[in-house]
Design a protein around this nucleic acid. Structure first.
Lengths: 237, 237
DNA sequence: CGATGCTTTGAATCTCGTCAAGATGTGTGG
DNA sequence: CCACACATCTTGACGAGATTCAAAGCATCG
């Protein structure tokens, strides 16, 4: 019935390889509880650019990203698009205020996610207190992230915003190191995340490169040369 | 952080007159439960420009605004200031992720608030399930507000941002009508909320005025002349 | 290959920020 | 009551930063 095994620390179907997150859905759950979750989950496989869920569609499930990278986006009537976050293995998405998703989630790479039907999931949050707590922690974390983004968009220049992104990726993306950060998202995605245009993103990257703060071996890969300065520029404190 | 709408139906020590909120801390609580809350609350009286709580101070209380208007602000090391929200009677503030407030709350007018010591408040959330649910709802609402702000800051121009503020004030400020919106905050507060400078705010107001979308009888009072256009410009959908 | 999509670069334009000055308003002390 | 200081708001001139429009470079994929 369960072709997969539950692991929380290491890479696994429900837990995740994303290591640096203190806000994990499955944190501090015992074997039995994990088992209960596994039983109501269903694996969803996505290829690049496919949607895990679409804005305005009926909010029937919540999801836990198992592998791959995705983004959360919100598109307004007049077509303007805001990327709200990039998400990684172990991240949890799908909660809404209403009965429809207020945002879309699109895979940037091939990806897999475990889907939980809402009623069943909600039931488990009632019977497993720790799970409810984890959800609350995740919510607080999401809010913290949103406030960080508010700060950046309200206060920072293009190059600083890019540095903020780099710092975030270093903290959250599984395989990212200062030596090599793979960028699975397009320049347009970055622009829509940071409230800029593609051209400005490209130029700001060129400037950071010419200032020797970063290198850009290929368009999809950057190296942080001066981590101190990049951190300083990207800092929100 | 952000507006935690909290209101009972009637005006009283815990709730108050602000009407338009669906996210009430005291929603669906019975008399006895309200009584328990009242017993652990303590009135705090503030005059204009005083702080209800200060950033980085020990997070000992949560608060329910009873009267007056305040703002939530976050100031970074390098002195840059971001206003996160304007809050009104019935709003709830003081929840944090850490043991210190990550933001400050400053009164824009003379104001009063009911204070709850955290341990006691937390105790009540355990014994009153509906209270816990209300807190969760409020959190979701706060997140929604933060995401709106992200959208505005990422996508909109100065005049549109101002219209967004007007729409928000119309929705949330107790006595605000299209005919008359009192602005208890300074231009600097508005600028720091919308990610602009005072000068840009002043000029954008002048432009909206010359375009006959609004009138500015006094610097602290505006009138919406063309509500449709203002709503359209300020809309985030 | 040619077609398509993504990225970069260039030039003109626009928006907003910065610096500076003046206007308006409020509160205080003489 | 007036005069003065102080804070807030507005307006102007200028410059920096970002967007827009346009074109060209580079990949990948049929």
């Amino acid at each position: 019935m369960m072709p997969y095994k539950l692991i929380t620390q290491a890479t696994g179907p429900l837990g995740s390889s994303s290591s640096r997150s203190e806000y994990a859905l499955f944190k501090s759950l015992n074997e039995d509880e994990l088992q209960q979750l596994t039983e109501v989950s269903k694996l969803k496989v996505l290829s690049q650019k496919q949607h895990l869920l679409t804005q305005s569609s009926s909010a029937t499930h919540v999801f836990n990203i198992a592998s791959g990278i995705a983004l959360i986006e919100r598109i307004s009537m007049n077509g303007r698009r805001q990327v709200l976050a990039f998400i990684f293995p172990g991240d949890f998405v799908g909660l809404t205020q209403s009965d429809r998703y207020e945002y879309g989630v699109k895979a940037l790479t091939d990806a897999t996610a475990y889907a939980f039907r809402k009623p069943e999931f909600r039931g488990l949050t009632e019977t497993i207190p720790q799970l409810k707590k984890n959800i609350a922690d995740i919510g607080a974390n999401v809010l913290g992230h949103a406030l960080d983004q508010v700060f950046i968009l309200g206060q920072k220049k293009a190059e600083e915003r890019l540095c903020f992104l780099f710092v975030q990726l270093l903290e959250r993306m599984p395989e990212a190191t200062a030596e090599s950060i793979q960028l699975p998202m397009t320049r347009q995605d970055i622009a829509d995340y940071l409230g800029l245009t593609v051209e400005t993103v490209s130029r700001a990257l060129a400037k950071l490169k010419s200032d020797k703060l970063i290198a850009i071996p290929t368009p999809q890969k950057i190296t942080i040369i001066d981590l101190d300065k990049v951190s300083e520029l990207g800092d929100i404190e």
